[in-house]
Nucleic acid binder design. Sequence first.
DNA 1: AGCCAGGTCTGCG
DNA 2: CGCAGACATGGC
Length: 306
Amino acid sequence: MLPGMGTIRLREDQPLDLSLSLSCGQAFRWEQREGWWEGVVGESLWRVRQEGRRVIYSGTTAPAVRHYLALDENLPVILASIDRDPVVYRSIEACRGLRILRQDPWEILISFICATNTNIPRIRKMIASLARTFGKRIPGSDEAVYTFPVPEALLVSCGDHLAACRLGYRDRSVAGTAGMVEEDPGILNRIAGFPSNDARAALLSFPGVGPKAADCILLFGFHRLESFPVDVWIRRIMHDHYMPPPPGAKGSSEKEDRRIREFGQEHFGAYAGYAQEYLFCARELLNGVKVRSPGPSSSGTPPARR
DNA sequence: AGCCAGGTCTGCG
DNA sequence: CGCAGACATGGC
């Protein structure tokens, strides 16, 4: 029997969609293999799988899994609180069981610096490349598996290694942010204790972190569930279904994104981040845009736009 | 081949 | 301030 193997029984009233939660774009290191989800959390390789109301795991412990999957949070209450209009209602129906994970702030900080102006498949590759190049190998796994690199690890090598990770122009931001965290190792812990607006301001001081990345880091790395990141998809959904862009508005602008974010937080309330994530995950349904997801996907005929 | 992607930063007016 | 371009790369 594998170390740390066990089963968690989900409460009848607490939905979970493990696959959706791990693949929806809030975490980038989970892969489906042989019926399991495999991912590195901290120093360990986890294997997780869901069978109905059971979560089966190995390589970790039940409390760690419960914490990571936020099984302590009352999802029906959260979903009821954001269920304020037919659009988000449809998203909830489509994605019920999606939970916002509790992930490591440092890993999320670097991940969402990498996530700017690119697509999810490539983000996954960039993160995998960083881990393979700078992380520690985790023993006891058939495939080579690596931890997410600590800040110092991203700095020691001569920079050629970073270039080899193919981050594009983001490599400077990753290196700069790693340098700042290495010089001030307590900074993320302090940010974790800040009120959200101060935490947001602090995150904006890292190179490569703008308003959208800061909100993603707050939501996924610091579990600030009121955060409402506005990316190209959310902007599209909000303009199509909630608040048409002002006449004469050209494409995207920081001002317009701020307007969308403020509307989202006002409209959805304290759990606006959950609303954002459900809308994001239902974007194909809502906007009729073909979206790729990892793993073998059985694609029917995509609905026409609108 | 060309448009686009979970945007950010810089340099203008 | 607010806005336009540049930006490095690869998915589709």
